[in-house]
Design a protein around this nucleic acid. Structure first.
Lengths: 336, 336
DNA sequence: ATCCTGACCGGAATCGTTTCCACGGAATCG
DNA sequence: CGATTCCGTGGAAACGATTCCGGTCAGGAT
């Protein structure tokens, strides 16, 4: 089953030395046209495929980067991963995609594994607070944060303009005449959770809306927590007339709550979600969202990382967020 | 930045030979308690992490498997990937997750890359017909198919009981009194597309329903194609009274069509989807689905693959499908 | 004719491990 | 007491590539 044709076999078949073969294979200019041709032919004949492990053992590059995502099953992160992967491919890097599953322990397991695989760099959407672990990592291998950051880390990052996005959403809801907006936030242990929360509080104040602390809840960026948060918000004495969810999965949970309570979205209660997702526009009614480009986020992160790997020192990037108004907050049925 | 502490450093610090150090590290029993202790301490002191590349270069095992999924952004496959990954982790294998993006060219690119990385085995949800490429692969490295298969391949696979699932769905709709069911199928180039189509035709015949060929359409397992297929079905002279979509994304597309046409799901038209997805139960109305366990599918595939890698010859597995009736086809609002 | 230059090449060292082989000494056995 | 096992060990050869270093040879300059 294991053919294992090595560079030695190729060299023998081509009638040149291993050294020359290697030179041809890696595009070293000091090779004659004749050797190039003969090696090329031998590679073809033998179906030779260089061994990436041996190659990267000798030269200090593995042409491999690690991508540690917090939850592959979250469509937003799936898109980020896809964007990053495509960008890596274009620079002929291979991406090791790992799934922390929103669990710091698994995050550590995979970081460990990345290290033993000697990846050239790591992109990570960090869990919780930067463990000592993470801090040690940053001194060992190029690191880039995507979507989330950790305080006090000197690493490049790609994030969304969370404040801008939330501001647009609150402005829109205020425009619609809402004064009591229920907020379903993310965990404070995650930077996006904090940023969006702070932006919400700030926007509510600036637009002169009701800043009742009862209107603020928080979940864990998964749908079940969105469900219970919405439940809590709506069962208060003076329930909100609009809901703003800090991510798509929690919005899905809220959707369930509203349906079960028989509330009509866009009529009885408005709903706006952070993160756009393909099928949010196909729902009945289509959901108003704060949209940001997950794929661009992934590809940008990869670009930054490869910059660092090649010795550069790129600066962080903040991508814009854009409100897309749909029927769940009074828009028309079509796309905005 | 690069610490590069090697086994030599550990050996020196522990005052033993490199050979002994290696033995301790890989749990070789012929080591004294004393060396074990000293090596352990040295590893700790130096923060040593073995180099997976060197290790796997020497021993013929890389402890790495490739997982090639047809579309990471399809929630079904995201779940499969998650299941497989967790199973690999339990056997201390690392998973290289790649995304073919429903594109045979990218599939080839990644297979190539898996090969140069010298993975111990590959799990794949194959695109289109088994290219010569794929066939050559099967002779080189252990292979397992997941979800989909390719005719004439002697490799273990994990699939769903497609026929059983479709049968339950059609039986249920027939029960509800439908005689004209519109079918939104997948591509014939993919085994699941063919299997579900054939099962549908068969079930329609057995339950004595209308077998009008106009009722059968097919898409590409993506939402846009579900949209246009539903559009075509509903604009015929005698439109169907129920829709059965062969996968979740196409069901999402159909959802959009129904909304735009102002048809009430579960009242004017019933809708059933193959594949369950977390948020299908949160929709309004919740969707009736043919549910199969994607995570189990992934972990089973990984189990089969590791079996092959260890020299076994496991047989293929077919996982059951189960109809979950919800309000989109007249069920109650709660879970079935 | 001699020297120099530059293009091309091959031998061998190297990357960080595992593993084969041989060896010393303690324990067991006749 | 000598022979035989057995355990733990270290030296050194792999694994499959890259790359340093020196050498050959052709051709142009002197």
């Amino acid at each position: 089953m294991d053919s294992t044709v090595t560079i030695k076999d190729v060299a023998a078949r081509a009638g040149v030395s291993v050294a020359t073969t290697s030179r041809v294979l890696s595009g070293n200019p000091s090779t004659s046209a004749k050797s190039r041709e003969r090696v090329r032919a031998a590679v073809e004949d033998l179906g030779y495929r260089p061994d990436a492990r041996a190659r990267s053992l000798r030269s200090a590059r593995s042409q491999t980067v690690g991508l540690l995502i917090s939850d592959v099953r979250n469509p937003f992160f799936a898109d980020v991963a896809h964007g990053a992967e495509q960008a890596a491919l274009r620079s002929s890097y291979v991406t090791l995609l790992a799934n922390a599953n929103e669990d710091p322990r698994q995050q550590d397991t995979y970081l460990e594994s990345f290290l033993t695989q000697r990846v050239d760099g790591i992109i990570i959407a960090p869990q919780g607070e930067g463990s000592a672990n993470l801090r040690a990592l940053a001194t060992k291998v190029p690191l880039v944060f995507v979507d989330r950051t950790v305080e006090g880390f000197e690493v490049p990052s790609v994030t969304t303009d969370n404040a801008g996005g939330i501001d647009q959403a609150v402005a829109h809801l205020a425009d619609r005449g809402h004064t009591r907006i229920g907020y379903i936030g993310g965990p404070f242990s995650i930077s996006t959770g904090r940023a969006r929360h702070d932006a919400f509080v700030d926007a509510v104040r600036r637009y002169g809306l009701d800043s009742d602390p009862e209107l603020i809840t928080s979940g864990d960026f998964r749908s079940a927590s969105g469900y219970t948060a919405a439940e809590r918000l709506l069962s208060g004495g003076r329930p909100p007339t609009a809901l703003l969810a800090a991510d798509s999965l929690m919005a899905v949970g809220a959707l369930g709550t509203l349906r079960r309570r028989g509330l009509r979205i866009g009529v009885d209660v408005d709903l706006v979600a952070f993160d756009d997702i393909e099928w949010f526009s196909e729902l009945d009614p289509p959901l108003t969202v704060v949209s940001h480009d997950a794929e661009a986020m992934g590809s940008t992160a990869m670009r930054l990382l490869l910059d660092v790997v090649e010795g550069g020192a790129p600066s962080s990037v903040v991508l814009p967020a854009r409100l897309v108004v749909r029927a769940s907050s009074g828009g028309t049925c079509g796309e905005a």
